[in-house]
Amino acid sequence: MSRPPTFVPPACARGHHLRTARGDFAVLDAVPSGPVHGTAMLLPGFTGSKEDFIALLEPLAAAGFRAVAVDGRGQYESDGPADQQAYAQAELAQDVLAQAAVVGDGPVHLVGHSLGGQIARAAVLLDARPFRSLTLMSSGPARISPAQQDKVKLLSDALTVMDMDQVWEAMRALDPPEDADVNGEDLRRRWLRHNPAQLLATGHQLTVEPDRVDELAAVRPLPVHVLSGERDDTWPVPLLDAMAVRLGARRTVIEGAEHSPNTDRPAATAEALVGFWRQN
């Protein structure tokens, strides 16, 4: 589970609901105080939310980029139905296209973390025109590692027999001691507002996702950026290196970061994103 440093957005950002043709989505919307050089949409990962990008919002806005972090349907403050079919990857990709259509004037820079990267890829493969660039952050070419598949299966099995509060308590009991009190109540509140159907559907997607790298590589001339930490237990870093080569993508490795460079090393991650966007 991603652990944002805080759930309080910076002064440059406001929370609101983005109205689209496919429903309303909760966002954190950070706007530069001066000229705007572009707009970015940030999609969170599995069990995550828009708050996972809080530490990026201020440096991105300070560099002149509007940054809109989005809760997808069924994530935290965005409503979603109890039907797992509503969270099919194609449905979530259509949501992203609808969000991009209203979030700004002209194409947006799309960033997807982990699961969000695979949803972002699916959106681009449906229609690349709304996007100025694509950054896959700690998001690999196909399904997650075997160890992570086992964890997702455990979670999915628990969700079928326990309520969200019971699952939360079970997960917290497994946390290492150093994580026990990190934003505990905020994380619990976020977890309880996730729709279990969304978690079941997207967790399954992570365990069966096919390799679509060649399809993405054929989308020209969209610039692609593969960004990760120097360690990752969800997709091994050498796999991400190879994916970047196959895509002809820019490759950035954030020192000292693991699966969530956006929370592990936000300043370095924001610098890498801005450098990529300024060239595209």
Results as ranks from 00 to 15, higher is better:
Ala101His: 12
Ala88Met: 09
Glu77Cys: 13
Gly64Val: 06
Val102Pro: 14
Gln99Thr: 00
Val111Thr: 09
Asp83Phe: 11
Gln84Arg: 15
Ile119Lys: 07
Val70Ile: 14
Glu91His: 13
Gly112Ala: 08
Gly80Lys: 03
Pro81Ala: 04
Ala86Thr: 08
Arg73Glu: 04
Gln89Lys: 12
Gly72Trp: 04
Val108Tyr: 07
Gly74Ser: 09
Pro81Arg: 10
Val70Ser: 02
Gln89Pro: 15
Val68Ser: 06
Asp105Ser: 13
Ala82Val: 14
Gly116Arg: 08
Pro107Asn: 05
Gly64Tyr: 01
Val102Asn: 10
Val102Ala: 11
Gln118Cys: 08
Gln118His: 09
Ala101Ser: 08
Leu97Tyr: 05
Pro81Val: 07
Arg73Met: 12
Gly117Ser: 08
Val111Met: 00
Gln89Arg: 10
Gly74Val: 06
Ser114Asp: 08
Gln94Asp: 14
Ala90Arg: 15
Gly116Phe: 04
Val70Phe: 05
His109Val: 10
Pro81Lys: 03
Tyr76Pro: 01
Leu110Ala: 04
Val102Gln: 14
Gly64Lys: 02
Gln89Asn: 15
Ala82Arg: 15
Arg73Asp: 02
Ala86Glu: 09
Gly104Tyr: 05
Val70Asp: 01
Ala120Tyr: 07
Gly106Gln: 12
Ala93Asn: 03
Arg73Pro: 12
Gly116Asp: 07
Asp71Pro: 02
Ala98Tyr: 01
Leu115Cys: 07
Ala98Phe: 11
Leu110Cys: 01
Arg66Lys: 14
Asp95Tyr: 08
Val68Ile: 15
Val103Thr: 13
Gln89His: 14
Ala90Thr: 10
Gly104Trp: 07
Val111Ser: 02
Val108Asn: 09
Ser114His: 01
Leu110Asp: 08
Pro107Val: 08
Gln85Thr: 15
Gly112Val: 04
Ala120Glu: 01
Gln118Ala: 12
Gln75Leu: 01
Phe65Met: 02
Val70Trp: 05
Glu77Trp: 13
Ala69Glu: 05
Glu77Ile: 05
Val96Phe: 05
Ala63Asp: 12
Pro81Glu: 11
Gln89Ser: 14
Gly104His: 11
Arg66Glu: 10
Tyr76Ser: 14
Gln99Arg: 02
Gln99Ala: 10
Gly106Lys: 11
Glu77Ser: 13
Gln84Ser: 14
Ala63Lys: 11
Val68Phe: 01
Ala90Pro: 05
Ala69Trp: 05
Gly72Cys: 12
Gly116Cys: 06
Gln89Cys: 11
His109Leu: 11
Leu110Ile: 06
Ala63Val: 04
Ala98Asp: 10
Gly106Arg: 04
Gly72Lys: 00
Tyr76Cys: 11
Phe65Pro: 06
Ala86His: 07
Gly104Ile: 03
Gly106Ile: 06
Val68Lys: 10
Ile119Trp: 10
Ser114Ala: 11
Arg73Ala: 15
Leu92Asn: 12
Gln85Val: 15
Ile119Tyr: 03
Pro107Gly: 14
Ala69Ile: 08
Ala93Met: 10
Gln89Trp: 13
